[in-house]
Design a protein around this nucleic acid. Structure first.
Lengths: 210, 210
DNA sequence: AAATCTTTGTTAAAAATTTAACAACCATTA
DNA sequence: TAATGGTTGTTAAATTTTTAACAAAGATTT
């Protein structure tokens, strides 16, 4: 697609927010929005909105603004969300179970197609109508079901091993929820989400005044 | 505490990673670590580690390194984790339920002390031994239990309303898991965690090559 | 105790990101 | 059709963050 230059990571996150607002605006029948409108709704500056969009092309009309539906479609395409993606979750603990049921993924085009775990009590069962398989079937199932993305929801001690398995099976993108740094070969996209660290960000700012 | 200057947000997240590594090192009996060691374990550069720490003071010995346990203690204090924090979760859906059971919070000093929801079928029940109360008891319970932090795990449509209630009840920090921008008065610390957006970050990088 | 080896803390440089400013351009109105 | 108002796309400036370099200082060796 576009992507001649390096795009800031933060821009990608903001595009996601913009798209949600645009979809909402379109549903409400608001056909045209300005960078000001988008900015207000998503908590950024209008200049930021225009800059973010400028990385990818010209989508608006000077003096007018952006067509909601059209810009929505463009952004979704930029994010790769003009098609659906298949996902595997590794780890059927509390987090894995919640993620498998989370409606927010479906809505944005992500289908959780299988779950892996090593606990014999869980294997063979279903979660939100999704089969749970043992880890040694990971490679087989990933290939069979053409799974693109993996979510690591196992304890930190097992995270690297699981990452290796996912990469070995041919997965190309990973979200790691385990609170540990895992490494993968460079053509694999990896993102870490540390839930506890999010709370620690709050306490850092609050601890001085309690 | 320290905090004369503006500290990069990213630094806070990295301190959290450093602390986990330091605790692990200490448990293994490794008493001294270098910025190089910390960097390797957490996936950053040694210069970054030293710079991050330099915002808060001098914790190491030149030619030697850092004492694992000592640095761990310092960082935990910086993050405000030398004491425990009480948390309320609003929303007993899939995500709220998972977060209430998530062991990772406990381990880092966060106690989920109550859950709020408006569904009559859920009110009065317990989740992971935590009581579920109706939303109209939020203010009362937050004050009674001296709750510091709130987690919003409700649909986007209700997020702003819940944020207002939390702030009204005296909460000072909020994590918002709803995929929408909420606003709060400026002395409240707010952080948004968009799970679907994390996956979209992956698909952005992958969509061109599928 | 001098020399050497290490690793920190700090300063300077580089790179990345955000903010601001404004020319270009479209639509509307006089 | 000229003038006005409004909003984008883009360029430049400012700010923030990261990386690199190195002097300072502790430990070890000769």
């Amino acid at each position: 697609m576009f992507k001649k230059f390096k795009i800031p990571d933060a821009t990608i996150g903001r595009l996601s927010m913009y798209s949600r607002y645009l979809s909402e605006a379109d549903e409400k029948g608001i056909t045209t929005v300005s960078s000001q409108d988008i900015a207000q709704a998503t908590g950024v500056t209008p200049a930021q909105v225009r800059k973010d969009l400028a990385y990818f092309g010209e989508f608006g009309t000077r003096g007018v603004g952006y067509n909601s539906r059209e810009l929505y479609t463009y952004i979704m395409k930029i994010l790769g969300l003009d098609k659906r993606w298949s996902i595997a979750i590794v780890g059927a603990g509390n987090l894995g179970r919640a993620l498998s049921k989370y409606k927010g993924f479906q809505q944005r085009g992500f289908d959780i197609v299988c779950i892996f775990d090593n606990d014999p009590k869980k294997i063979g069962k279903k979660l939100a109508n999704i089969n749970i398989y043992p880890l040694d079937q990971l490679e087989e199932k990933v290939k069979e079901l053409k799974i693109d993305l993996g979510i690591i929801a196992v304890p930190a001690s097992a995270a690297q091993e699981v990452a290796d398995m996912l990469v070995g099976a041919g997965i190309r993108g990973i979200i790691n929820f385990a609170p540990i740094n895992v490494t993968v070969k460079e053509n694999i996209i990896l993102r870490r989400v540390d839930l506890a660290a999010q709370l620690e960000y709050l306490t850092y700012y609050l601890e001085e005044t309690r």
